Amino acid sequence: MRICVFGAGAIGGYMAAMLARAGAEVSVVARGPHLAAMQARGLALVAAEGEFTVPVRATDDAAALGPQDYVVLTLKAHSVPAAVPAILPLLGPGTTLVSGVNGVPWWYFHGLEGPLADTRLESVDPGGVQWEAFGPERVLGCVVYPAAEVAEPGVIRHVEGNRFSLGEPTGERSARALRLAAALEGAGLRAPVRPRIRDEIWVKLWGNLSFNPISALTLATLDRICADAGTRGVARAMMLEAQAVGESLGVRFPIDVDRRIDGAAAVGAHRTSMLQDLEAGRPMEIDALVGAVQELGRLTGVATPVLDTVLGLIRLRARVAGLHPG
């Protein structure tokens, strides 16, 4: 089984390191000093239970790797459309594209019945670039739960979590999903195959669509956002609007909104990914985490006034900082 991790930063690097240690035939596509370090010294993983370094085949030219059995995408959502030409050489007739990207996925309506079947989402796939180039039938959904960071080039620090939930857009327990799950579990990771992967996408998205933009606007950590009555109220209103959108699409939310907020508060003084990107001068995942929910609301006729307001504010914040080209 040939597995390529495209975008082997923190999360992709963590997965690749675990797979390589278990003896999987894994390669990574990366760039810059991180790539150079992996080529020179291998890929190092530092975790609470110990650390190790493994050799990996690392390149910035996917064409040199050839077609794979699985291509795991762990890029930021806004980076994928521009990367499509670089990804295509990895895809053979039987290649599965594992979508480990945060937010509402571009393939969301593939495999669903009803009037919105095969609807393409402009907010996450402008012009249908991914839909046309990859084809949604290749996709295996993946909800990423681990927290990790690139401590230095070639070194991944694992913070917590080891679950990568997998799921077919159609809900079936396919052979390709079970095969990848077995490889991940053999590497010491958790990889349940879910019949309703969109439910998990929404539960993770629920927090990201609210806490991320609020943190970037206020510069506050999760605990402070949840403890402050004003920002907690804004987050809660956004989440209830999003829940109405999700439920209109058949999503089941297994917990209520206040438990979800309390769970975020328990994480403590965490700086969200959007706040980290703002501080580091990197483009923020605004459209996949927030803009797509607005688009889904308009498609389903569900009003999202609070979300719309916060989306307008965070888009302008990003543009003023030069981090949002829209």
Rank of each mutant, 00 (worst) to 15 (best):
V155G: 11
A8C: 12
L45C: 05
V320M: 14
R41H: 15
N212I: 04
D287Q: 12
L313D: 05
L166C: 06
L90V: 03
G128Y: 05
I201W: 13
T74R: 01
V290I: 13
V143E: 10
S99M: 08
L45W: 08
K76L: 06
V139T: 08
F211T: 02
W131H: 12
T272F: 10
T170P: 07
G322D: 10
L65F: 02
V267A: 15
S210Q: 07
G291I: 03
G42K: 03
P254L: 05
Q243H: 07
I214V: 14
G291V: 03
D223M: 05
W206C: 07
A37P: 01
P81E: 09
G32Y: 11
R2V: 02
T53I: 11
V104M: 11
P55A: 14
G23K: 08
A237D: 13
C142W: 07
V139N: 01
D308L: 03
T218S: 14
L90H: 08
R224T: 10
L91V: 02
F164K: 01
L180F: 07
F253E: 09
V5D: 02
I156A: 07
A47M: 00
G171E: 09
P325L: 12
R163E: 14
A181M: 06
R179T: 13
G114H: 10
A83M: 11
A183N: 00
G12M: 07
L116G: 08
R259T: 15
A265R: 15
L112N: 01
G135K: 09
L91P: 02
A20P: 02
V29T: 03
L166R: 06
V203R: 14
I197D: 13
A288V: 01
E113S: 15
E132H: 13
